[in-house]
Design a binder for these strands. Structure first.
Lengths: 223, 223
DNA sequence: TATATAATTTAGTTATGCCTAAAAATTTGT
DNA sequence: ACAAATTTTTAGGCATAACTAAATTATATA
């Protein structure tokens, strides 16, 4: 059994690999809020367990085994988020913190039972895809809200899940995955977005918009 | 926040206080499967946090604060057992092991939501009382099955929860809390009990019977 | 291509937390 | 009161996981 810290490192390496290319010790350390030397230490430990590949100064990569474990933990996390949300009514801005702890301790049996209860879901309450039990991640195609233009209609696909204040803010506009909205105006010079959500207007700043991903984009210039 | 080990010590002290009188270092150590020196060490640590009272060579007692924490953990454990059983269908011989881990990590919010979902229950799947959120333990009066005589009818109140093989054995007879049965015969010389459960006869050995507690005992010599 | 800068690794330290064996202290039983 | 049993103290082990400082290696640029 891996320690919680080791699991967190694997999960972080997976996420960093997914978003950018090479995962350097420094980037990993920054992501986990530890010093680079600490990351080097854990990388050596994970390498000795054949969970990562690593050559000095060349960044780190998950092995197939390491990737499987990372996906398993991400699966736990997202299933838990959805389960807590749907079965126990935990507010969507609170599920991340709960899942962050529980993801390391639930059994495979409980995982399978939650999965069944939820009807084998493919996305968590923030729209992030839930890997299936074989580690296959459902693919979605979404673009950042910051790429939208005036007059476009779209559907929220996913929002960043780690800042609960942001989630509460989005919730106050009813801006959840699945919500449709139309871009009324994009203010010039990197300005905010004015959008229309079911008849209600809302102003969304750039920094917030960066955390929102959408799909089903259509041009609907007519009001 | 207490460590898991510290919480386990508090829980164990509570259970030992409940069953017998004085909790000596040796008894506690044996119960937790550690050496007496380890127990002494933890007792000192708990004492420094005002969770136990202790005078050298005189055994250990929970303070009010320590007792409250012990009851909180026991509440977590038993609520979890019932929740896993009812909401997720985990078999009753498996819920103890799961709860043993989760009891240390669930939040108060999740605890409260499980409690609400379950309708503020007072007993877990093995019949053990669930302390309420103020630490009040529902009182029940039950007697060991070994005290029963021929011809008595009773209802299973509680069974020991820590041996899953025993639980599967009882399950094979449908002998759950709430199950009614009649004692057909008590074999002499500390022999086994022959009982009738809804028309099915079963033979229950002394060692098993010691782990079963019953109430609603009535004399019903007539067949 | 040399050198300055940045990133990474190594080595050693700190801190936590729980455990044990052996020796010393204390209590208990007869 | 003495021997036996129990408990405590002492001293140390092991594992995890973080840190700092110094050394090493890579890279960027002049």
């Amino acid at each position: 059994m891996l320690t919680q810290a080791a699991e967190d490192y694997l999960k972080s390496i997976y996420k960093l690999e997914e978003k950018g290319g090479k995962v350097s010790t420094g980037i990993l350390a920054e992501y986990l809020d530890v010093k680079p030397a600490s990351a080097t230490g854990m990388i050596k430990k994970l390498k000795s367990m054949n969970l990562v590949s690593h050559q000095r100064y060349q960044g780190v990569t998950l092995t197939d085994t390491g990737k499987a474990i990372a996906l398993e933990i991400i699966r736990h996390h997202r299933l838990l988020e959805l389960y807590l949300f749907k079965a126990l009514g935990v507010p969507w801005d609170g599920v991340h913190e709960e899942a962050e702890i529980l993801e390391h301790v639930i059994s495979e049996d409980v995982e399978a039972r939650m999965d069944e209860f939820l009807g084998y879901p493919t996305a968590d309450p923030h729209g992030s895809p839930i890997p299936d039990k074989n580690g296959v991640v459902p693919q979605t195609q979404s673009i950042p809200m910051t790429d939208l233009q005036d007059g476009q209609t779209c559907v929220v696909a996913e929002v960043s899940d780690s800042d609960s204040a942001l989630l509460r803010h989005l919730g106050s506009f009813n801006l959840y995955p699945g919500t449709e909205f139309r871009v009324v105006e994009v203010a010039p010079f990197e300005g905010p977005f004015t959008i229309d959500i079911a008849g209600q207007q809302a102003v969304i700043g750039r920094e917030v918009a960066k955390n929102i991903f959408v799909n089903n984009v259509e041009q609907t210039d007519n009001v």
